[in-house]
Amino acid sequence: DKPLMPYMRYSRKVWDQVKASNPDLKLWEIGKIIGGMWRDLTDEEKQEYLNEYEAEKIEYNESMKAY
């Protein structure tokens, strides 16, 4: 599988927590909350997800070359 983009990594990490805090919200409403949370992160906080993505992207590209 292709590596997940940084925002999607963050979304997967916080989804269950946001859903548990807001059990009556629809999926798109939860997505909207998470989008706002992502925008509110500092560049340093986002960098963690970007670093994970870049590392996985290198691994993915290497595995595709071998294939």
Rank of each mutant, 00 (worst) to 15 (best):
K2F: 05
R12T: 07
E56C: 02
S11M: 08
A20S: 10
D40F: 00
K65W: 05
L41T: 07
E45Y: 03
L50F: 12
Q17D: 14
N22D: 04
P3E: 12
T42Y: 02
R12F: 03
E62L: 11
E59T: 12
A20M: 09
I33K: 10
A55T: 10
K32H: 07
G36D: 14
Q17S: 13
L50A: 11
K26V: 01
D40A: 13
W38F: 04
W38K: 04
V14G: 00
K57T: 09
Q17H: 10
L25N: 02
D24F: 15
K32R: 11
L27E: 15
K65H: 08
R39V: 06
V18L: 02
E56K: 04
R39F: 03
K46I: 01
D1C: 04
E48G: 09
M8G: 09
N61Y: 09
V18K: 00
L41Q: 03
K13Q: 10
N51M: 05
P6A: 09
S63I: 05
L27I: 11
L4H: 10
K65T: 11
K32E: 14
Y60H: 05
Y7F: 10
M64Q: 12
E48A: 10
K19I: 10
P23G: 02
R39C: 07
D40G: 10
M5G: 14
E62I: 05
N61C: 09
L27N: 15
E62N: 15
I34L: 02
D16E: 13
R39H: 09
M37S: 01
T42P: 14
M8K: 14
E48K: 10
I30Y: 05
K26D: 14
G36N: 12
N22F: 11
G35C: 10
K65C: 09
T42F: 03
A55M: 09
G31L: 07
I58L: 14
E62F: 03
T42C: 09
E62M: 07
R39L: 06
P23S: 04
N22I: 08
E29G: 01
Q47D: 10
P23C: 01
K32A: 11
L27F: 08
L50G: 10
N51K: 13
N51Y: 06
P6C: 02
A66P: 10
K32L: 06
M5S: 15
W38L: 00
E29P: 00
Q47H: 04
S11P: 02
N22R: 09
Y60L: 12
S11D: 00
E29Q: 10
E45N: 06
M64W: 08
N22S: 04
Y49I: 03
Y53I: 07
N22M: 11
E62V: 05
R9W: 11
G31C: 12
L50W: 11
G31Y: 04
K46T: 01
D40R: 12
K2W: 01
Y60G: 12
W38Q: 03
Q17W: 10
I34W: 01
R39E: 11
W15M: 09
K46L: 01
E54P: 06
Y67N: 14
Q47S: 11
K13R: 04
S11Q: 15
S21C: 08
G36M: 12
I58V: 06
D24P: 03
M5E: 15
S21H: 08
W28A: 07
I58S: 12
D16F: 04
K19P: 00
I34H: 03
M37R: 04
M5K: 14
Q47A: 08
E48C: 08
E62D: 11
V18F: 00
W38R: 03
A20T: 11
S21K: 15
R39M: 09
K2P: 02
P23F: 01
S21R: 12
T42K: 15
E45T: 03
K2M: 06
A66Q: 10
E56L: 01
P3T: 06
E45M: 08
Y10S: 00
M64R: 11
P6G: 10
N61I: 14
Y10W: 04
D40V: 04
